[in-house]
């Protein structure tokens, strides 16, 4: 298994490139901080805002790092601690529940030996229950880092989906 980044203590050239790219895409505009942070978080393997990245971003945008930390801790979609590389979001709104998303959750829990909200020891998977993300037509469905995997109504299909994820 390839080594997995637990926590970023130093700024890497990749992170610098990511921040530079995202900041450029947002016209170096500090008022777009929330969008910038969401885009950076998407680009970081474990989907959070590492401390050195926040410090670097504060220099790039000429704002205080406390302001960045304030925003990161304010919004529930922004994280200051590492998350799973693949968060398996299962819809628990009524249409998916009708199409038996509960069984899907149970299958995921059994296959990964994981409770909802926990992260696997290697930091790769996490199961979360989320409200509707608009995939009722292909339910029961899972969303992983923005991509939707539908019709997960058998163990084979679930396994197939997990294999696609690295």
């Amino acid at each position: 298994m390839k080594p997995f980044v637990q926590k970023l203590d130093e700024l890497t050239p990749e992170m610098v490139a990511l921040v530079d790219r995202v900041v450029e895409e947002h016209q170096n505009d500090p008022t777009q901080l929330v969008g910038i942070l969401l885009d950076i978080q998407d680009g970081v393997e474990r989907h959070y805002i590492p401390e050195p990245v926040a410090y670097y971003l504060s220099q790039r945008l000429s704002i205080r790092v406390t302001q960045i930390y304030d925003v990161v801790t304010f919004y529930s979609m922004l994280y200051d601690k590492p998350r799973a590389k693949y968060t398996l979001e299962v819809c628990n709104s009524a249409p998916c529940r009708v199409k038996d998303s509960d069984t899907l959750v149970e299958t995921l829990k059994r296959l990964l030996n994981l409770e909802v909200g926990e992260v696997t020891y290697d930091g790769r998977f996490c199961i979360e229950k989320v409200p509707c993300f608009g995939a009722c037509d292909v339910s029961p469905a899972v969303r992983v880092n923005g991509a939707v995997y539908g019709h997960l109504d058998s163990e084979e299909r679930v396994l197939d989906m997990l294999r696609q994820l690295d």
Binding site: R64, T66, Q67, Y69, D70, T73, F74, Y75, S76
Partner: peptide, 9 residues
């Protein structure tokens, strides 16, 4: 300076 700030919600 802005060393202190509100955090969390």
């Amino acid at each position: 300076i802005g060393a202190l700030s509100f955090t969390g919600r």
